[in-house]
Simulated assay, not measured.
Amino acid sequence: MDTSKHGRITPFAVVGGPALMALYGGIRLLEGSRDPGVGWLVGHSLMLAGLVLFVPVLVALERRPAPNRTAAGRVAARTALGVALTGLAASVVQIGIDLYVGAVAVDKADQHRLFDGIQSHPGVVPAVYSVGPLLFYVGLLALLVAGAVGRARSLCWWSPVLMLTGTVLTAVDLALIPVAAVCYLVALAPLVGVGGVGRPVAA
């Protein structure tokens, strides 16, 4: 990936990803938005775009300035990136299923029938709805923790704390997605620095 192009994309992704998630969360709160129709499709389309924007964010975190990083540290960072991208892919598949169901279902009952039919296939629920998407947050949190510790840290200590807080909030109640999105935005804000990959934080 071209470094200068990546540097231009990252600040946009840092803001755009959480912002689109917040819009999705806001639409979910509107009456009728959880039934098949325009609200469902618009909201899930925004969420899909927001998830895609996290790809350059994850890459930026893995490539953060770390002159003293050891070989083991590089392997760990790449592993965390792989875990996060795997979870992100699972989340994208989940949203894709949601969009398909929302587009073809004629009413709420048909929506439930379609979801039941898809989720009844072996392995779909853990891969796409439970374990799979969780890997995104595990990998992302690992990258944030790695960026917030050590002498060459390029993130602040509160970045992983806010990311974890936002994730817990969504697990407690999906109505809190807009609040969680703000947590993600603030957590990732230090990435918007020189070259789009953050400035080293002074010890």
Rank of each mutant, 00 (worst) to 15 (best):
P18V: 12
P18N: 11
P18F: 11
A19N: 00
A19D: 02
A22F: 01
A22R: 04
A22P: 05
A22I: 00
L23V: 09
L23N: 00
Y24S: 03
G25K: 02
G25R: 03
G26F: 14
G26K: 08
I27A: 11
L30F: 11
L30M: 15
L30T: 15
L30P: 06
E31D: 15
G32A: 11
S33V: 01
S33N: 07
S33L: 02
R34H: 13
R34L: 15
R34T: 14
R34A: 14
D35T: 14
P36Q: 04
P36L: 07
P36V: 03
G37M: 08
V38G: 07
V38L: 15
V38R: 13
W40F: 14
W40C: 07
L41A: 10
V42M: 10
H44L: 01
S45R: 09
L46I: 00
L46W: 00
L46T: 00
M47K: 13
M47L: 15
L51D: 08
V52H: 02
L53F: 03
L53A: 03
L53W: 01
F54Y: 13
V55Y: 06
V57G: 01
L58D: 04
V59A: 08
A60E: 02
A60K: 01
L61Q: 09
E62R: 15
R63D: 13
P65F: 12
A66W: 09
P67V: 08
R69V: 14
R69M: 10
R69H: 11
T70L: 02
T70N: 04
A71Q: 11
A71C: 01
A72H: 06
G73M: 06
G73Q: 01
G73K: 01
R74C: 10
A76N: 10
A77L: 03
T79C: 14
T79K: 11
A80G: 08
A80Q: 05
A80I: 03
L81I: 10
L81Q: 08
L81Y: 09
G82L: 01
T86H: 08
L88I: 07
L88S: 05
A90V: 05
S91H: 02
V93E: 09
V93T: 13
Q94D: 14
Q94Y: 11
Q94M: 12
G96N: 03
I97S: 09
D98I: 10
D98H: 07
L99K: 02
L99I: 04
L99R: 00
Y100F: 13
V101F: 12
G102L: 08
A103I: 05
A103C: 01
V104S: 00
V104N: 00
A109W: 01
Q111V: 07
H112K: 14
H112N: 13
H112S: 13
R113L: 10
F115P: 05
F115L: 13
F115H: 12
G117H: 02
G117D: 04
G117K: 02
